[in-house]
Amino acid sequence: MSSDKPVPTKGELEKKDDSAEEETGGRGRLSWILGWVALPGVVVGGLFGGGVLVGANFHDSWFTRAFVWVGELFF
């Protein structure tokens, strides 16, 4: 039982390590952007946008009036 598979040399192994690091780095940046920008942006935007829709369409409700009253204390 003998194998014809060539044994990787030291240089080849180092090259592989470099490319793996690059891949990990690219994925890391993507995860960072997703985790720190996109997802929080969606959450914050969703909350704010939901509020905008509620404020615009239910402007007579006690709920909106309460927030407007609080807002007017500051602005």
């Binding site: 704010f48 509020g51 905008v52 829709l53 509620v54 404020g55 402007h59 407007v68 609080v70």
Partner: peptide
């Protein structure tokens, strides 16, 4: 966040 959205929306 939601409240400021309501304020701006109104």
């Amino acid at each position: 966040l939601f409240g400021s959205g309501v304020y701006v929306g109104n």
